[in-house]
């Protein structure tokens, strides 16, 4: 696995390979083709950050530019999925998902259940999340906890190029609606990715670093911030185990609990707001099912309960950083009754 490509290229490769493998896979969204689909537009954008670049010419008629009407095209994608296609719809920023909530949580998420398992909705909704790009309150939110709350949706947050390709491949092949979250700050991250196709199963957390003193449970971009903190802590002799959830629904409870039971100390790192979040969800899971093993209360490192600030210095303070994780780890290792 020697070849290194970026997170963006890994996503593009998954789309390319799945579209080549299965002609029912289509791509749709704002500027996914670019240039309003004008034939011969070789410089078409391929989405605002270029993830779908090159697909329009390679798969004629299967990459659709849509109007700026999220409620219409997300609804169309979900309808197409119930009728036999496998649409991959891109809704630029998850912040805009509100206008199509009925289509997602009241329709797509319910069909399999309400029709007794006879209906499937193999749609993937790709979207960008997260702060750090100076895009302010309406273009920087995480919001994945909202979707994790809904039974019937699968929620996926790849942290590496390898995971991005394998999880998107699985998302496209999956027969349920999948919310696929891509952090804006990860698109240029490079890493080893096999050239061949592969699918990573949902509900399997990845232990990205082993350690016996403290468990850090995290996801998405915060995996990298947590690894940076773990590296610093190792220099002080504290060995952290870093667990990347990879999918929040389904959730790999076993891996979280096994690590929590082994270390007895847990820090959850989540870029989302602190209330009703993945951080609270994991904290509750550990408190309920691994209580006997805990040596200290679970610590949470999250963004504050405020909108993402417009001011650059404030935004930098808003995003959890490695120092805050180091401090939280020191709190759980130093805790006494």
């Amino acid at each position: 696995m020697a070849r290194s490509i970026t997170y963006r290229e890994a996503l593009n490769e998954a789309l390319t390979q799945e579209m080549a493998r299965d002609e029912s896979v289509i791509v749709m969204g704002e500027d996914n083709a670019g240039g309003a689909g004008a034939p011969g537009e070789d410089d078409a954008w391929g989405g605002v950050l270029g993830v779908t670049k090159g697909l329009y010419h390679r798969f004629p008629g299967r990459v659709l530019d849509t109007p700026i009407s999220e409620s219409a095209f997300i609804g169309a994608a979900i309808g197409a999925a119930t009728a036999g296609l496998r649409p991959v719809a891109e809704l630029m920023f998850v912040d805009f998902m509100g206008v199509c909530f009925d289509q997602i949580y009241n329709q797509a998420a319910k069909f399999r259940y309400m029709f007794g398992g006879k209906a499937v909705t193999p749609v993937v909704i790709r979207t960008m999340y997260g702060a750090g790009l100076r895009a302010a309150a309406q273009h920087s939110q995480c919001l994945y906890p909202l979707f994790t709350h809904i039974p019937g949706l699968k929620v996926v947050l790849p942290a590496t190029p390898y995971d991005a390709k394998g999880l998107l491949t699985q998302a496209i092949r999956d027969n349920d609606p999948v919310m696929f979250f891509e952090h804006k700050a990860l698109y240029d991250l490079a890493g080893p990715v096999p050239e061949e196709s592969y699918a990573l199963p949902f509900g399997e957390a990845n232990v990205v670093r082993e350690g016996g003193d403290v468990t850090i449970v995290t996801l998405g971009r915060m995996v990298h911030t947590s690894l940076e903190a773990a590296e610093r802590l190792a220099a002080d002799g504290v060995q952290c185990e870093v667990v990347d959830l990879r999918t929040t629904s389904p959730l790999d409870e076993d891996t979280v609990l096994e690590s929590a039971e082994a270390t007895g100390r847990v820090v959850v790192v989540d870029e989302a707001h602190p209330r009703c979040s993945i951080a609270t969800d994991i904290s509750a899971l550990v408190a309920q099912k691994a209580f006997g093993a805990l040596q200290a209360p679970v610590e949470m490192v999250t963004a504050p309960h405020t909108p993402v600030p417009f001011s650059g210095p404030l935004e930098d303070l808003y995003i959890p950083d490695a120092q805050r994780i180091v401090n939280a780890v020191k709190t759980v290792t130093g805790w006494t009754r």
Binding site: M1, Y162, P194, E196, Y198
Partner: peptide, 10 residues
């Protein structure tokens, strides 16, 4: 590494 191999298509 073995798991990554086993998950390749085919």
């Amino acid at each position: 590494d073995l798991l990554a191999y086993k998950r390749l298509d085919g």
